[in-house]
Amino acid sequence: MRVTVDKDLCIGAGQCVVTAPDVFDQDDDGLVELLTDAPADTDREAVKEAEHVCPARVISVEG
C-alpha cells in the first residue's frame, strides 16, 4: 500500500486524522500531514476509510 496526499487541496476537515491517526496528522494550519507513505498492514482498512471520508478527496491509496 502506498499513500499520497495533495496538501495544496486540503481543507483541514481532519477526518483522516480521526480515522487513521497512525498515518495522518494535521500541521499548525490544520492541513493534512502524512506520517508514513507506507502504512502497516494493520492500518490498511483505516487508510482506505480515510480516503473515502475525505471531503476534499486529497488522499490517494494504491495497492
Rank of each mutant, 00 (worst) to 15 (best):
P55C: 12
C16M: 15
Q26S: 06
D29G: 12
G30S: 12
V47S: 03
D8W: 05
D37N: 15
E45R: 06
A50Q: 07
V3P: 00
I59A: 11
E51Y: 02
K7F: 07
F24S: 13
P39I: 09
V3F: 02
E62I: 13
I11L: 06
R2V: 04
T36F: 01
V3K: 01
G14W: 13
E49F: 12
I11S: 07
L31N: 08
V18S: 01
D28E: 11
T36G: 02
D43R: 03
G63K: 04
D22C: 10
E33Q: 12
D29E: 13
A50H: 11
H52Q: 14
D25E: 13
A40Q: 06
P55H: 08
C54V: 09
V47N: 07
A50E: 04
E49M: 09
C54P: 14
A20T: 03
Q15G: 14
D28I: 11
R57H: 13
V58D: 10
V23K: 00
R2F: 02
V17T: 04
D37S: 15
I59F: 14
M1T: 05
V47T: 08
L31G: 04
G63S: 05
V3R: 00
V18A: 03
T4H: 14
V47C: 11
H52G: 08
V47R: 04
G12H: 13
A13L: 15
D43T: 06
I59T: 09
D22Q: 12
T4Y: 14
D22K: 12
D22Y: 09
V32N: 08
A20F: 01
T19N: 04
V23T: 01
T4K: 10
V3E: 00
K48A: 05
D25P: 15
A46F: 00
A20K: 01
P39W: 09
L9G: 11
V23E: 00
G12K: 15
T36A: 02
V61C: 12
C16A: 11
A13C: 15
A46H: 00
E45D: 14
L31E: 05
V32L: 14
G30Y: 10
P55R: 08
V18C: 01
A20N: 03
G30I: 11
Q26M: 05
A46S: 05
T36K: 02
D8R: 10
G14V: 09
T19D: 11
